[in-house]
């Protein structure tokens, strides 16, 4: 593999929103777990070391700051991906990407040696990055449902009721954690140069798919 051949991967707005999102998500999850601990909906509590805010009031302050960062940053990211050519073609899953799903699964399962041709992201990556946008949206919506169950009662009603919305909010968080674990795993096996590209913008040429 020729490492000197580089290609521009990530425009500044993607790199900035990516890292702000990483910070926002970390704030939301850790402060959210502290809030969870005040009245657990399941039969377990989260060890304090994974929580933020020190106590319930502090955790709520972090959470309600984080929710604005997460939401505003997420909207900017979404608008970029919806309304720029680069964003639409690289990240969001579209109908024509469906054909690429099975070949990529076969490749990852070791049933196919050749990496299917791709541009920046393959069909499975596009699915993941599109689904995670929906998960983020679900997290925000279920959060609104338990933040303003009287003023915005129609949002709470989407989830059934207040208690159900709390469970949904927790599940969306769990799904985002699972995504992040998978994402970090792929970052590790994709190598250092790929990781650096989220800081510098420049990474491996697209024509050379990552080798496992």
């Amino acid at each position: 593999m020729n490492n000197t051949e580089k290609e521009f991967h990530h425009p500044p707005i993607i790199r900035i929103t990516h890292w702000l999102n990483a910070i926002a998500l970390l704030i939301m999850i850790t402060s959210g777990l502290r809030i969870y601990n005040a009245s657990p909906i399941f039969d377990f509590r989260i060890p304090s070391v994974f929580t933020l805010g020190g106590w319930l009031a502090g955790a709520r302050q972090w959470h309600f700051f984080g929710m604005y960062l997460f939401t505003v940053n997420g909207i900017i990211y979404l608008l970029y991906n919806l309304f720029t050519k680069h964003g639409r073609e690289t990240t969001l899953f579209r109908k024509k990407d469906a054909a690429g799903i099975i070949p990529m699964m076969r490749y990852y399962a070791g049933l196919q040696k050749e990496h299917p041709p791709q541009r920046k992201y393959n069909a499975l990556q596009k699915s993941a990055y599109t689904v995670v946008l929906l998960l983020g949206f679900g997290g925000i919506l279920s959060g609104i449902a338990i933040y303003l169950p009287v003023q915005l009662s129609f949002v709470t009603a989407l989830f059934g009721n207040y208690d159900a919305a709390r469970v949904w909010h927790f599940l969306f968080m769990g799904a985002l954690v699972l995504f992040t674990i998978g994402h970090l795993f792929m970052v590790v096996i994709s190598g250092w140069s790929n990781f650096l590209s989220m800081f510098t913008g420049w990474g491996r040429k697209y024509s050379e798919p990552p080798t496992l």
């Binding site: 969870y36 005040a38 009245s39 909906i41 319930l56 709520r60 338990i146 169950p149 207040y162």
Partner: peptide, 10 residues
């Protein structure tokens, strides 16, 4: 009416 505690229970 629902009484919502800041802790999360109601």
């Amino acid at each position: 009416t629902r009484h919502c505690c800041v802790e999360g229970w109601s």
